[in-house]
Design a protein around this nucleic acid. Sequence first.
DNA 1: CGCGTTTACGCCTCACGTAAACATC
DNA 2: GATGTTTACGTGAGGCGTAAACGCG
Lengths: 294, 294
Amino acid sequence: MTLKQLEAFYWAASCSNFAVAAQRLHLSVSSLSKRIAELEVSLGQLLFDRSGHRAVLTEAGNFLMPRARELLMAAEKLQTELRHAANLEGYCQIGVGELTALTWLPSLLRQVRNRHPKLSLEAFIGIGEILEQRLADGEIDVAVVAGRSSLRSVSSERIGEARFAWYIAQSVHPEFSTVEPGLFEQLPMVGLPSGSGVTRLVDDWQRDQGLVVGERIVCNQWGAVVGLLREGLGFGLLPRGWADAFSVQYGLRRLGCEPELPALDYYVHWRSDDYRTLVKTLRELVLRSVCFNI
Amino acid sequence: MTLKQLEAFYWAASCSNFAVAAQRLHLSVSSLSKRIAELEVSLGQLLFDRSGHRAVLTEAGNFLMPRARELLMAAEKLQTELRHAANLEGYCQIGVGELTALTWLPSLLRQVRNRHPKLSLEAFIGIGEILEQRLADGEIDVAVVAGRSSLRSVSSERIGEARFAWYIAQSVHPEFSTVEPGLFEQLPMVGLPSGSGVTRLVDDWQRDQGLVVGERIVCNQWGAVVGLLREGLGFGLLPRGWADAFSVQYGLRRLGCEPELPALDYYVHWRSDDYRTLVKTLRELVLRSVCFNI
DNA sequence: CGCGTTTACGCCTCACGTAAACATC
DNA sequence: GATGTTTACGTGAGGCGTAAACGCG
């Protein structure tokens, strides 16, 4: 029995499949499979039931899971306690919403490069729902998205908020200067798909105001949303801090709105069962590096 | 960092030198040395100070010791909890007093062979003092000897007792039938060296009775002691159960004695810091297999 | 010079990845 | 046939022991 074997087993059991676990361990699927098989031989117990389409934990496997986690945690603790600096090494993936990617991600990546030169951090951009699922599946290590996670297996901590405002192309629709019920009936709303935190924010706000949900033009990129607004295809919600930088130049007018939309809370998310120091340190770095002036 | 490296470090630090630790791990000294060096590289910390004649723990090494032990214990626990049978494997050494070797050891070895076919148990025979030291140094894994250990680092548990009686060659010394003060003045006492439990027993008894300590013929083997007694060179203490089997045939008469010598307590000893399941199971086996009719 | 530890070196095992096979849905 | 896991196999790194070197008493 080796720590590597236990690690392979642990991630294989807690990720959605061997391929994801293998990716996390920077290992081929075949090697991962063999490591687990060797652990099984060493323990004299089958840990996975391979009779079905996918490997599923046996009783012995379930027994081992929390204990393997304990042991791996203890080993990690030992290493971080003894190692010189808190210099992270390795490779990990962070999932962020596109808005975060456009605004705050570059600063995080720069900080990570300065502080932990040997850590290569790769970003994956997507909407909240997808990121949560990828996080739970083990395909990414941390995620920064709006709103708490709906998944039990994911922990989260608030890191800041973003404020939004409505924008419209001034030249194409000079008749509107405030958000009013008629607006939703006459023009389509341009925004992100339904899985995104901003869209959830709008949905809640519209319901609270008793407004009809009019036509929507959906696009999964903020850049494209801005483009659609410039073309005058509709009105839409943009992050204030971000949009105000280019709204004049792009001919976008901010619409008055009463009451204002509430701020959208941003959270850093991670898997509750992820014991790695890597993740813990990364979380702390995210918290510290936040300058959420979106 | 691997479990093997930690194991190497742990035993190297807790045995008297690398050679002993290497023997315990069934490893060459050079491989042990390299394992430790690799652990040091992996942790980025020197664990031993090699500037002197012998390797001595650094601060980091001292810090690691108890934690390494914890981790290794946890790993062993995990394995024994999961492994099918409590089938021991491997190789270990038991130290026993010569008396134990002559009487009860064969039965233990037979039981071990039956119960744990894959465990090769090697016996080392010596007097208590030597065995204790070898135990503390890490050269043997358990020891069965008379009396508690004087060493702090050695734990012990009582397993039984042996009763002794005085014997003398009837044909050579027909004038004696009981132990009396004059006996000690006229004839030398034949027995084991001073490090042995029996000799300590006699010393205490003589002091309690206010008897003079007469001449002694010392020999480090019971078989030889019996031979010397047969030749009539003196009188001596023999384990009753053992001696009565051949005393008539050998012409040895048991001498009456008032008060009788107290029984000699036998203990199984092990290193307090030895976390191995091997040792724990072996101890239990020793306790159960005891039929101390010496 | 002895003892304890490390270095040098050749050997061989073992862990890896690629690619194919297998099994289940 | 798509997906998920294992087997086959060739390759390379790394852990092993022997033997020599080193360094302190």
